[in-house]
Design a binder for these strands. Structure first.
Lengths: 226, 226
DNA sequence: AAAGATTTTAAATGTTTGTTTAAAATTAAA
DNA sequence: TTTAATTTTAAACAAACATTTAAAATCTTT
């Protein structure tokens, strides 16, 4: 028997050598973390209950004991990840800075998120493609949040003539699409140009800078030319 | 019974007016077409042998009779679809027109292809993510073709000062990324903005025009500003 | 029309799937 | 320390899975 204090998967907050707080990840949490990793890698259809149990180092029955079914566990994880995908952008819109600065910050933050979880976007798109209705019942929440925080700002900027007149539905894809595409096709691009992980990191950073230039150039300059 | 001469999907080898050999490909082709549809919709892991047989209206054993296994059939279909994905772009590069015109033509052609097969890009990215090594053993073929046809043209244009100095590895994603992203996230965007299929068509066309403006603007104008 | 080759079928194969069960092990409460 | 509640386990479950088989049906050749 392993003593409680020796169990792995604890998170300890240490300040100047002293353990301030020590949280023992419960079996339920360990299972969910392991499942998240596997689902992100293999998707819902490609993941078996045994994959999850193996990744967590736990018994095959525990998924159903804690989450009742593979699908219920998946939906829980998907909701978390979709919120991560959406709220990153939304919280930036609250910053009290200029629109151009905001848009650059969105791209930078999006880049940071994808660098941390490169398969997140492909995962979300794949699973929505598979089962849109069940996975996005509350999409309108994010939709309203995003629109509410953008529309006013955009209209004001359009009237002032500092930004191109663009529908809000097109603005976000214009801003984030090109960079997210690179991560969606990560494996293809890596194989295509024979890149290592480190080289891919450099590649995406360069690409991010191209995107910042391209997007701001299009939205904020030469409005009379097109 | 339908007479042999009236059957569709026959391929006949004729030499000096005489039928030397006549192969009826109907069942094999029907099966492959049905499998292509199902794989595009559900992916490899989400598709069962029964899904394919049902879609083709044929017996469950025929996949193995004609293609030996579900995976061999899948690989065959994936190769076809990946070629479709790549060669569309490559053949445009042969046109004897200016670089700017070529890039616009690539976007237009890409748009046409995705309108015809909206789930193609997501399918390719998902499957490469799942099994890159097995699915892309001959990727270098397309890589060389693409680079060979672009590099010279780009370098020349850069020297003439008519295009921004950009690495060829970044050029294609800059051109096609933003628009392909819209189709990768088709279901999400449709649900997000409560669009019908017809409305999505209009949406993508508008987006395509934004992309053309944005890309050409970035690549061909104001080179001194950034 | 008969013989031979090919295609299609229904049934069965063994494996893997998600899930359940009931007992064992562990933890918490008395 | 004993009892009760909870967690973990190994085993079993039916259903679904890809694939195979051998017979039936169809087509081609003679």
């Amino acid at each position: 028997m392993i003593a409680e204090s020796e169990k792995v998967h604890d998170i300890c907050f240490v300040q100047t050598g002293i353990i301030v707080k020590c949280i023992n990840l419960s079996s339920e949490e360990k299972l969910k973390e392991a499942a998240k990793t596997v689902f992100l890698k293999k998707g819902f259809a490609g993941t078996t209950a045994r994959d999850i149990a193996d990744a967590a180092g736990m018994n095959i029955a525990l998924t159903n004991y804690y989450f009742r079914s593979k699908e219920k566990l998946f939906v829980e994880i998907f909701r978390d990840l979709f919120e991560l995908y959406c709220t990153n952008t939304i919280k930036i819109l609250d910053r009290p800075v200029e629109l151009k600065e905001k848009i650059i910050a969105i791209i930078e933050e999006d880049y940071r998120m994808m660098k941390e979880e490169p398969s997140l976007v492909l995962f979300i798109m794949t699973e929505i493609h598979r089962d849109c209705e069940n996975l996005l019942p509350e999409l309108s929440k994010y939709k309203e949040l995003l629109k509410g925080k953008l529309v006013g700002h955009i209209q004001e900027a359009v009237q002032k003539g500092i930004i191109r007149n663009i529908e809000v539905e097109h603005l976000m894809p214009i801003i984030i699409g090109s960079l997210q595409f690179i991560f969606v096709g990560k494996n293809m691009h890596m194989k295509m140009h024979s890149m290592s992980e480190a080289q891919f990191d450099k590649y995406t950073e360069t690409h991010k800078n191209h995107v910042i230039g391209m997007v701001t150039n299009y939205l904020f300059t030469d409005l009379n030319l097109n």
